[in-house]
Each structure stands twice: as structure tokens, then as C-alpha cells.
Design a binder for these strands. Structure first.
Length: 399
DNA sequence: GTCAATTCACATGAAAGAGACCACGGTCTAGTG
DNA sequence: CTAGACCGTGGTCTCTTTCATGTGAATTGACGA
């Protein structure tokens, strides 16, 4: 019986008219033909990179701006074009793009070089070799022929935070060793503060040129959404005001275009699932909710056991007393909780770091305060809705 | 009442250890001709 | 003779612990008005 129901479900699914024409246009892997409202930035990038076509080393370039302001998109877009020209004219330019944020990709010096070598068709082991060797191998590969080598490091702040700024120094110093080739760097960061916190020498060599990406405003977001939705959705599927609302939501969150597009896509998916003939404003609200919850649940599922235990302790405390919680209390509850979860309790020192990590992930709000005579501690509160916290608790209790 | 010293409860840093993972080279073993 | 299994060594990387140092304001207590 249930199976029959399933068959008819699939059949009616097929019969149903999809709202989407090309969903992939709304996904963030998609590179549009034309980038709106970023003409100046693209021109600037092109200006900096153009000397490469004359086999001169382009200045190192540093792009920064908040997430979803099109930094990566513009960088890739521009470099794609340059590569095309270079290929037509037979100019040896090599561009490698790396995202340093993804774990296990390029968050250490070793892995950075390993990744780059991988891009250059040189497979190297993920670990086990001395960094020095990888470094030399990299130099050898680059030096094989005369070329301009451009390395795009996305989310470079993550890399530098972990490895220190010596890596920039190494990379720029490399140019004095190289005879045939030249390397330039394009650093991309969405942490505006981070550039102030690195060594001034590294800073000046990294950002010989600097471009700031301002957030999109609501009107610009609307245009972007309109342009994309024309391709992504069938005609007349979007209800009045849907795009405006999407744009408004995203503009509130520092003009994040990626978020706006995701919102629209998820809203579309929800509408489709509800067999609604149109995407309405209500769908946006549901989508907003769902995205947030999915994001949080996803992050938590990926966390190691210890982090989960810490979060469990915080949720347990927050349930009892919704006011503010302090580090010491969390540690007490956490210690009791550990044996239940089959864990060995860590030191308070470590828990302190874990709390800071959870804060970074946006799951909790933790602020260091001084209570004067009564010491210094973190003021902790949950940064997620009660329903989400409840859901998390159930998942954590199941183990 | 004012002001500097004190004090608390952690935060924050640095260094070092444990254990997982991996490559590499050498040795051993079994299978093959 | 050779391919493959099986060490031991040396390397990276992540997560932790240990030890040390830092920190900001409420509190205290001395001081003077």
C-alpha cells in the first residue's frame, strides 16, 4: 500500500510543473556572463593584472570586503578573461585559485604548496614529507619554463591566522630566487580587520594594490536577483514583491548577494515542494528560517564530540536559567556530562578555547567581561532560537 | 570622598607532548620461471 | 628473481595539557578634608 502511494507520488511529481528552469543559476558555483555593479572593481583588477600579458610581474593584489560582495567572483571572472587572451597569444600565464578556508585544503604552508602542486599536475602526498622538500619541488616546477604565475588565495586571513605571516614573506621572497618565472599573489579576505593585525612588512608586500568591495545595497541586489531569476525561474512564477523582500533581507545582512540568491533558491524549492504555483513572500520567510536552522544543525553535526559536549552543557544551563551563563558554570556542567557521553573531560583551559570556537561559529554569543572583584569571564548566551536549541539537544542526547 | 593597591576568575599565550596519518627505504617471504 | 607484505624511521598535523602571564573593574583600605 505504502509502495503504491510512493509510485503515485513520483508520478504526480513528474506531472507537476516545475517552477525552476535552471536552478543552478542560483547556486553559488555559478559564474554569470556579466557581473552587475562591479565594473569599477573589475577594471581595477584588470589594470593590475594586465602587465602579466607583457610578461611583467603584476603587483600583488589584495581584495577585501564582506562576504557575498563578489570578491571571488570578480577575481575569477577577470582572471578567466586574462587567461583566454593569454592562450590566444601564446603567453605563458598560469593562474591557480585556492580557497584557504576549506579544511584540509590549504590551511598550512605544507598543504598550500601541496595543493598548488596538485593544480599543476604534480601529485604530492598529503603528509609525510618535509615542508622544505615540497617547497623546493614547487620552485622546481615553477622554474621549468618561463611564466607568470598568479596565485589567488581566497580567505587568506584563515591561512595567515593559522600559520603566521611568514608564508607571505616566503612567497614574495621567492621572486628573488626565481630566474625564469615570477609569482604574484592575489589575496582575498572578508575580514577587514585582519590586515591591520599582520606584520607591516608582510602587509606592504601583500597589498601593493588594494581594492575594497563595498556591500551591495538593496536596489543593486534587486537587479542582481532579477537578472538571475529570469534565467532560473519560469516566467511569472515569482509573486509580487518576492525579489524586493529577498533583497531587503540580504541588505540587512550587510548586502550579502550570496545569501540573497540562496534565499531565493530555497524559497523556490519550498514552494515547489508545497506544490504552490508561485513563490510567495511567505515562502521567503520559511526559507529564511530553514536556512538558518540547516546551517546551525550542519555546523554542529560536523563538530567534534568535545565541542558538542560543551554545547550540550550550555543548552542544559540555558534551559534552567535563560539569563547569562559564565565559563565556570559551563565547565562544571560539562564535567558531569562527559562521562555520560563517554568522554574524558578536558581541562578548563581547553574548554575556554572551545567556547571561543563556538562563538566564532555563531552558535553562542560569548563576550569577555570583567566583573571587577569577582574576576574575569565570558558572558555566554545561546545565539540560536529555542526550537533549534531543542532540536540540537535531542540530537546530542541520542549521541 | 578620593585614589591607588589588591584581588578574583578566568582569558590568553607559548611550548611541548600524544597520537594519527603518511612516505620512504630496507628486509623478509612466497610465488614464479 | 621479483612482487608484495611488513617493519622502523622520520616527517606533518591536530588536539591537548602544562605552565606562565595578562587583565579590567569592584572592592578595600589608607589618607586627607
Amino acid at each position: 500500500m505504502a509502495q503504491q502511494g510512493l509510485t503515485s507520488f513520483f508520478e504526480s511529481f513528474l506531472k507537476r510543473d516545475p517552477l525552476f528552469r535552471q536552478k543552478k543559476v542560483l547556486q553559488d558555483t555559478y559564474t554569470p556572463e556579466e557581473i552587475l555593479h562591479r565594473d569599477d572593481e573589475i577594471k581595477q583588477i584588470a589594470n593590475v593584472l594586465a602587465p602579466a600579458l607583457r610578461m611583467e610581474r603584476p603587483s600583488n593584489l589584495f581584495l577585501y570586503g564582506k562576504t557575498g560582495t563578489g570578491k571571488t567572483l570578480c577575481a575569477i571572472y577577470t582572471t578567466n578573461h586574462i587567461i583566454q587572451v593569454a592562450q590566444d597569444k601564446g603567453i605563458p600565464i598560469r593562474i591557480v585559485y585556492l580557497n584557504c578556508k576549506l579544511r584540509r585544503v590549504a590551511d598550512t604552508e605544507y598543504r598550500l604548496f601541496a595543493q598548488v602542486l596538485g593544480e599543476l599536475d604534480m601529485q604530492v602526498p598529503a603528509t609525510g614529507l618535509p615542508t622544505e622538500e615540497i617547497y623546493n619541488l614547487f620552485v622546481k616546477v615553477i622554474e621549468q619554463k618561463k611564466q607568470i604565475f598568479i596565485l589567488i588565495l581566497d580567505e587568506i586571513d584563515q591561512l595567515l591566522k593559522k600559520t603566521g605571516d611568514g608564508i607571505i614573506y616566503n612567497l614574495t621572497r621567492l621572486n628573488t630566487q626565481l630566474k625564469n618565472s615570477q609569482i604574484s599573489l592575489i589575496g582575498i579576505s572578508n575580514d577587514v580587520m585582519f590586515i591591520d593585525n599582520i606584520d607591516p612588512r608582510a602587509r606592504s608586500s601583500l597589498s601593493e594594490e588594494e581594492i575594497t568591495f563595498a556591500p551591495y545595497n538593496a536596489l543593486q541586489l534587486q537587479e542582481i536577483l532579477r537578472r538571475r531569476s529570469k534565467i532560473a525561474f519560469k516566467e511569472g512564477v515569482l509573486d509580487e514583491g518576492v525579489i524586493e523582500k529577498c533583497a531587503a533581507y540580504a541588505a540587512r545582512e550587510h548586502g550579502d548577494a550570496r545569501r540573497a540568491l540562496e534565499l531565493l533558491r530555497v524559497a523556490g524549492e519550498i514552494a515547489e515542494r508545497q506544490e504552490s504555483p508561485k513563490v510567495t513572500i511567505e515562502h521567503i520567510d520559511i526559507a529564511e528560517d530553514k536556512i538558518e536552522r540547516d546551517r546551525v544543525l550542519d555546523i554542529i553535526a560536523q563538530q567534534p564530540k568535545q565541542q558538542q559536549a560543551a554545547l550540550h552543557a550550555i543548552i542544559a544551563l540555558a534551559e534552567k536559567r535563560p539569563e547569562i551563563i559564565y565559563t565556570g558554570e559551563v565547565y562544571e556542567v560539562y564535567q558531569k556530562l562527559c562521562p555520560e557521553m563517554g568522554l574524558r573531560p578536558l581541562t578548563q583551559r581547553r574548554l575556554s578555547d572551545i567556547l571561543a570556537e563556538l562563538d566564532m561559529l555563531g552558535i553562542i554569543n560569548a563576550k569577555v567581561i570583567s566583573k571587577g572583584r569577582f574576576g574575569r569571564t565570558r558572558e555566554i548566551s545561546l545565539a540560536i532560537s529555542e526550537q533549534t536549541a531543542d532540536k540540537i539537544k535531542k540530537i546530542l542526547e541520542k549521541g
